[in-house]
Amino acid sequence: MTTQHVSVTVNGTRHEADVEPRLLLVHLLRDVLGLTGTHIGCDTSHCGACTVLVDGTSAKSCALLAVQANGAQITTIEGMEQAGKLHPLQQAFWDQHGLQCGFCTPGMIVESSWLLAQNPDPTEQEIREGISGNLCRCTGYVNIVKAIQQAAAELRAAPEASAGSAGVAAR
């Protein structure tokens, strides 16, 4: 079986690799590119720990092949911080204790960034619906919701803070 060439831009940096078509995007990120911030929780496309943005659209990277992402701009949790400063969502998860073990957090933050790009002023119900594809077995979600509310307020006040290193407007 032949390999195929893929070219992806991850958090603003272009990467080239020759991969088997069966390689999952999450394995490209973690095993080939060494970006282990994206976690594998369930590996069955249910938990959302592996969530990344592909051309600005949130995706579970365990349900996507690396070859499907050929040519795409990808944002992972590593791309959220800007010049040594935490993204408002990262800071808010810290401030509001939006994590305990932290395993779900990368996917939760990336999905929340997509949610806030779609809807900068979500209600609590909209936030809960927005993270319904991301499971957390520690927190009970209460502080996660508070963290997203904090970040939403901050981003509305200073939208440039949401840039994200990939520089892709989420859609």
């Binding site: 579970k60 999905e111 927005g130």
Partner: peptide
């Protein structure tokens, strides 16, 4: 249908 990521794809 499903969750936001499922509906996106």
């Amino acid at each position: 249908i499903g969750d936001p990521q499922v509906r996106n794809w």
